[in-house]
Design a protein around this nucleic acid. Sequence first.
DNA 1: GACGATACGGAACATGTGTTCCACTTGCCA
DNA 2: TGGCAAGTGGAACACATGTTCCGTATCGTC
Lengths: 187, 187
Amino acid sequence: MRADAARNRDRVLEAAEFVLTRDGLDAPIRDIARQAGVGVGTVYRQYPTKEALYQAIMADRMERLAAHASSLAAQAEAGTIDAGSAFFTFFDSIVTGATTKTIFADALTDAGIDAKAASGEAGGHDVLIAIETLLVQAQRAGAVRTDAGLPEVLGLLSGACLAAKQQHWDAALRERTLAIIFDGLRA
Amino acid sequence: MRADAARNRDRVLEAAEFVLTRDGLDAPIRDIARQAGVGVGTVYRQYPTKEALYQAIMADRMERLAAHASSLAAQAEAGTIDAGSAFFTFFDSIVTGATTKTIFADALTDAGIDAKAASGEAGGHDVLIAIETLLVQAQRAGAVRTDAGLPEVLGLLSGACLAAKQQHWDAALRERTLAIIFDGLRA
DNA sequence: GACGATACGGAACATGTGTTCCACTTGCCA
DNA sequence: TGGCAAGTGGAACACATGTTCCGTATCGTC
């Protein structure tokens, strides 16, 4: 691969993340290309379709999310933090992220749908596995009711993300609303 | 107004509700016209813009929703049913409706945004006033925590609607997820 | 039944956006 | 440095969809 091609690939990915995060999924490819300072042809050379570009960004986001969740799970396992805090902190951080980076909400929802498609055992996304780990740990620690499964938690999580996104929750409203959800989730 | 014009106006409204409910907001006007058995010109004669058509349907829906909420509020006031049940029943029926009639979720969210725009006193939509009445009654009856305001309830409500819509909740999942939210809302 | 006004249908237009294509440019290697 | 393969930019194309327009059909009245 030529040096300029590699440079452009990174610029396109960066620009796509920026623009999609700002404008949502409906952002035109032309905007992404302009942001990256390249032509649309260059974007299409890297990602054959808009869907592919979107998938690439989602995969990246999901990976980071999974890493965050795994890190919290490991700390909880080690006893550095308690499992309940780990679970609720993660939940909160996702919703907070969704408020500003609107693409988060859709991503999470997509993941949830994937989860349903591959329901039961071999859950598709790493994020989902990581979230389930946090959930189970919190339940073992007695911080979360045991009759709440992954589907319910994902429903609450993406619901909160979607509402936060569409209604533009401020920090105070987010805190109060999450407090209600968290109280419902407790054992 | 000519008789055929009046007949078509009703057919268009009916078709629009059907198609928008089935396909969501992105449904093309042509589909609505075809469903109504008229040309697009006829649709545009009744509603000068797609937005106007959407608003007309939303207004209709909101009116019915408000009527439902008011009816429950009146029953609760009269002591026929208890205020807590009235509130939670209404909440449940909205989410159930959103699962099949996907337009509900967007409508509710829009209403919520309107509410924020006209925040404070003279809340715009009748539905919101009716919901707030149900909420206050339930709080007076000791069935709902008093630190939950209308914004929080609307957030939870539209969040649940949006998640139910996008993740295609079945009845069992809806019931379990709402149980968690309701537990969080209780005093 | 005739006639004017009203309404209709759907082709045509405007616009936005995903995708392709190719003449031109640029990086790499000998 | 010269040559060519790889890469680029953006015009052009394809297509979906909101909206307008007008020749034609229909309604209501006399």
